[in-house]
Amino acid sequence: MEESITQEQQEQQEQQVPKTYELKFFGKGSEYFSILIINWLLTVVTLGFYYPWARARKLQYMYGATALNDDRFAFHGTGKEMFRGFIKVILFYIVLVVILYGAVFLSEGGQNMTIYWTGFLLFYALFFAVFPLMIHGAYRYRMSRTSWRGIRFGYRGKKGELYGNFFHWLGLTIITFGIYSPWMEINLRKYLVGNVRGGDAKFKYSGDGANLFLIYLVGYIATIFTLGIYSFWWQKNIYNYYIDNISVDKDDTPIKLKSTVTGGGLLKLFLVNLLITVFTLGLGYAWVEIRTKKYYTENIKLWGYIDLDTLQQTEDIYTDATGEDATDFFDIDMF
């Protein structure tokens, strides 16, 4: 009896000792360049149909080159899954285009205003109607297809909930002429990140709309007055506000994230990237992308008590890549 108490105490004490975590990015420009070239070759040869596979390969490399405590992340999405989604997105896009051009055509170039505006509104209504669906699908797929040490991530958000929330926040944003948008952004993040799991560890986002609003306001004004130079510090504030408010929780023990990105660091990153791009006529793109990824990744510091050896496999496999493809197609940056 006595012995077991001391053991419990010992465990408790152990939990109080901060663990060490390290995020590293091992990607190399030359390796990534090779991937881009092969992707390019296969895309050209297949008249573009290789694109989803190419995208899967790029993501696989980027995830595989990121390591937490020397163990790599892995992206398991496949070209085949992404191709299926890709086809669905293209079909949806064709429907959108047909509606838009149909409206212009049937209204004889906007002469019949009723048909013209009906088509126009239908176009936007459809696009916005699928927007939450797109985000939901993208998160589910991306998380489910990401793993670390064989433990899958997951996203447990509910489609219906996201729909309700999204249009509620969008409505508020429209009513306030966009002033609400930082709050909307934070709310959305709280919902999305809050539903992310890494095995049995829960993610959480705890930002505040007012702070983000201030970051945007100050950034906007200062960028104008410094003729754009402040934009790097603005970018830093936005990134750091995102990272610093993320935390992970497992059995009531946390890991907190902290970004050490600086405005000067971003300025230097931008200048060197610019030089590489200019002097290689764009061929150095692979190196630019790798440098950028390395800078952002390795500047995330983790601090906390979770024993990463104890994560359990809990999340489902989800293989529908439609949302993922849609966010790529419409160029919406979700991650």
Binding site: F26, E31, G64, D71, R72, A74, T78, S147, G150, Q313
Partner: peptide, 21 residues
């Protein structure tokens, strides 16, 4: 297999959770 840099990951089948580094 999947090779990234100096790291080799061997999976029992494509994208299985069970693997060897």
């Amino acid at each position: 297999y999947e090779k990234i840099g100096s790291m080799l990951e061997i999976r029992i089948k494509e994208h299985s959770d069970e693997f060897l580094a």
